[in-house]
Write a protein that binds this DNA or RNA. Structure first.
Lengths: 227, 227, 227, 227
DNA sequence: AATGAATGAGTGTTCATTCAT
DNA sequence: CATGAATGAACACTCATTCAT
């Protein structure tokens, strides 16, 4: 899926970048406050520091603003993430850090991530799939790390579990923003990282003598024929 | 937080219930397709099988529709969940089942949960806090079970982890709907339950010889002074 | 102009009268509070003590309510007026009393008169002309009295003045309602009657010698440099 | 009570004034025909010569239109009134002229005055009190003149009568519009002025010795050729 | 005769988008 | 390149009126 083309009537690429940065910054703030649908293009223009006419010199439609935001947020997340990484770490330490760094970037870019998260569904199919593709690329970053760790025999992970765990990690990051009404009361970003990583690697530490196979539960449910 | 009052011009309580059920059903469908903001009240009325005037005999504002949806979805989830529970199960089996049953209910009520999940942020503060309270009550159901399991020494779980794990379970359920664009390609609800529960209880099965304490990682990160 | 026909689905004339009395009473109250246009038929029905369906058993349209009100108010004014009249009075005293009694009836039926006064313009042409005809009939009552007084040489009034004075009297009554925001602060109905009647009969008591001395006064003032 | 703020999305003050003049003109015409409540904002926009969207660039709500009308009408009345005044007249002549000029302005601005008169009650409390204050200021103009005349001993007027007479004069002006269905059949503005002023100063001539100098005043006014 | 649920045309208002200056 | 006035389709919501029960 290609980058969606956002039309501009202006030629100067440098100016386009500058104005769009202004737009994104203003839009993130506004969309956070009122949501994408309730924020008006006029408001975005004003918050960006120019007129509605000028706004439309740099975008083709309101949706483009949302697209620019989502696009920018992914880039910013990845960029900051890379800044945080210590390339000297190895083994499990590296794995922990990749995840923790991600959580911390999300914490840092809370508003941005939240907007992208809550409003991206309003994108057109074309724009959405581009954005989702970026999401998948982030997922792949975790997959790579996990596969590497598995190959190094640092962790044991079954085939089917791999992808799901990466989804879980990503969503655990998002959660920190979209469930902040609850989580921020109970956790700091430090404790949140600690417990999420702990949970991710060690689970609920099942007392082994109590273990029964999940398969059995499955069977029970299936014989009941419900759902 | 009390149940928000949704005004109706109609007196017959039975009829109100019937019509509101129609409205909720139609609204879930519509909001799924186009989202809350893009769906018009006229469309909701039409999809409900009556005129716009009649719609407004049973609600006070468009927001009330969303509120009715969210309220109904929670009730429906809890109700179906209870139906699925086999009260004869005990120990870890019960724990597995509580979680799996929840996932299966979410799967069954995918559209409903997705709408509630994606659109509830558009509720007014008053309505939202009522809805969030319901969410917290669901979280408590998991908490109770986990505490019970802990007391029976079926699992080991530290203080700070408990709440977060419950959030994780709830969100893992939601994920099945809001990330279905990815997850449903890779998993069936059966395999999804299996892997999520597996992951929840056993984590990534860290190879013990490779284990280092998370605290150490934390220290590394902190000494770097980043974030 | 004939009495406008207000259709009713009910046969029993006595019931029609009873219900319409209820309607008029409720409507006067409501129209006073919110005005004819902002008051809804539902509200009128409710304030009348029955359902919207029943309301429409006794009227054909919302406008009929206004017509009923206007019609009733005139009748009530005339009726109360006659009650107040002392037939033993004669001469100027009678004239004073006719006018004062009218003012006092208006004071008594303030809300009714105000509604009729402010809202009758919303009647259809047909209904309006019937109402205006009633107004003219009231005017004629004053005309008769004034003509009688003129014939008795109690007052001097020129041809063209007669009609206008009667309009003035009627409007002076209405004024007491539609300018009550100002008049009721400054006058009681007693003082209002006194001064209006005084003004009506004696005017501003122009100083007779003033006409002649004006030039003189002016000269004085002008030399003083004032004015 | 301060001038109510009517919000506009347009910045150019000159354009605002121009457009609002258009709006007022169109609204007076429409409100006369159908009344404030039955006239739609779309009709006002169309009659003003622009689209509904443009209308709302210059007002905040429908009520603002009514407010603009009332506000403008008062200003226009006062302005025209002042134009008509001959500052060289003194004594009773001046008094006659102040009143007659007012009647003639009302005649000239019939539609405007009638709308303001009949619809101002639909204003919000805030706007209404501002409008009523303007009305009171007009009343004070008459009060000043009467007090001056009293001090010059041109007229005799008792304390309690003064305010009421001014109300009467104002209402006599309004009457010429809201009772035109009757008055215009019987009077021209010339005869209406003559008889109202006559009545105002000399009453019903109970006392037979009352003079009729009005004819003379009329001649003065007529020879000036104004109005 | 009374009820009140159903109707849908109509209303005020918003806002993304355009385009002349 | 920037501006902001103009546009009008679209929307939430109201309410007089009807009619089956």
């Amino acid at each position: 899926m290609k980058k969606k083309d956002v039309p501009s009537l202006v030629k100067d690429e440098r100016l386009i970048k500058k104005r769009r940065d202004q737009i994104v910054k203003a839009a993130v703030h506004l969309f956070n406050q009122k949501g994408y649908h309730k924020a008006t293009t006029r408001e975005v223009a004003q918050a960006s520091g120019f007129s509605i006419g000028t706004l439309y010199e740099y975008i083709g439609s309101k949706e483009d603003i949302l697209y620019l935001v989502c696009d920018a947020v992914y880039d910013e997340v990845v960029e900051k993430w890379e800044t945080l990484m210590d390339e000297n770490l190895h083994g499990l330490d590296r794995l922990y850090q990749v995840i923790e760094a991600y959580f911390r970037v999300v914490d840092d870019l809370q508003n941005e991530v939240l907007v992208m998260y809550q409003e991206s569904k309003s994108l057109s199919e074309e724009a959405l799939s581009y954005v989702l593709e970026k999401e998948m690329r982030m997922k792949e970053m975790f997959e790579k790390e996990l596969i590497k760790a598995k190959e190094l025999e640092l962790i044991q992970i079954e085939e089917g579990q791999l992808s799901m765990v990466c989804h879980n990690i990503l969503v655990a990051g998002h959660m920190w923003t979209f469930r902040r009404w609850a989580l921020h009361k109970e956790y700091t970003i430090d404790t949140y990282c600690k417990w999420q990583i702990n949970q991710l690697f060690y689970g609920l530490s099942v007392n082994k003598s109590a273990t029964k196979t999940i398969t059995k539960v499955q069977q029970n449910l299936e014989t009941e024929g419900t759902v």
